[in-house]
Design a protein around this nucleic acid. Structure first.
Length: 221
DNA sequence: GGTGTGATCGTA
DNA sequence: ACGATCACACCA
């Protein structure tokens, strides 16, 4: 089956609906050499916009988050901790500033380019046995996958249907029962179980594969 | 496997 | 002042 982009309408749905639907879709970036770096989305987080204190859009539109307030199907890229870029899929009706943070990919193509972009591990020992970064560490984490796909600030606002970076559907269905748990690294609304991942995926950090107790999930939904 | 800490700078 | 984080050191 050939991989095809998704429609603008597909992206116009609520972040909480779209987030699990993005699981198992492909994230594809074309690099300067015309090579494609491809990963399958295995972990995401939903950010609901004005009603979500953890969202960058919670306090309204600014120069930084302007892309979130535009139409769905575009990439919102932000800079954090003074050194990292992270990538989100903007979704929902235009103006609602909803987004889904891409947290991890299973790398499928362009792994050599990804490794080069990520750099050698500082712990790789010297000599012929010096190992380059493990496949597992290429795209596990939002800043790592952005670096692997060379996603930076100039990619903010890119159209995911036609742009340098695209989300494609290759017919691989989302998991029927996605795993669900709390979002990572936030200090407010931390109880909302709005992180979704492919159950048992080895491409998601083991410590993040713990599911939230069912009653607490139900209670906050 | 887990925890703790420093890096580093744009944003509000 | 504080991040939608990461790499590394150290402990188990």
């Amino acid at each position: 089956m050939t991989a095809r982009p998704l429609s603008r309408r597909w992206y116009a749905r609520e972040a909480l609906v779209l987030a699990p639907e993005l699981l198992n879709k492909l994230l594809v970036a074309r690099d300067e050499a015309g090579r494609r770096r491809v990963g399958r989305i295995v972990e995401v987080e939903a950010y609901a916009g004005a009603t979500d204190p953890a969202s960058h859009a919670y306090r309204g539109s600014t120069a930084r988050n302007a892309t979130m307030f535009g139409p769905g199907g575009h990439l919102y890229v932000y800079f954090t901790y003074g050194m990292h870029w992270c990538a989100n899929v903007v979704c929902g009706p235009s103006g609602t500033a909803q987004a889904v943070l891409i947290r991890a990919l299973e790398p499928l193509a362009g792994l050599d380019e990804m490794r080069l972009a990520r750099g050698q591990s500082a712990t790789a020992g010297p000599g012929p046995a010096a190992q380059s970064r493990a496949d597992r560490d290429l795209c596990r984490g939002p800043a790592r996958l952005a670096q692997a796909l060379a996603i930076v600030g100039t990619d903010d606002g890119v159209d995911l249907i036609r742009g340098r970076i695209r989300v494609l559907d290759d017919g691989f269905a989302p998991p029927a029962h996605p795993a669900q748990g709390p979002r990572v690294g936030i200090s407010v609304a931390a109880e909302r179980p709005w992180r979704f991942w492919v159950p048992d995926s080895g491409w998601v950090s083991a410590s993040r594969r713990r599911v939230m107790p069912v009653d607490s999930v139900v209670a906050t939904q």
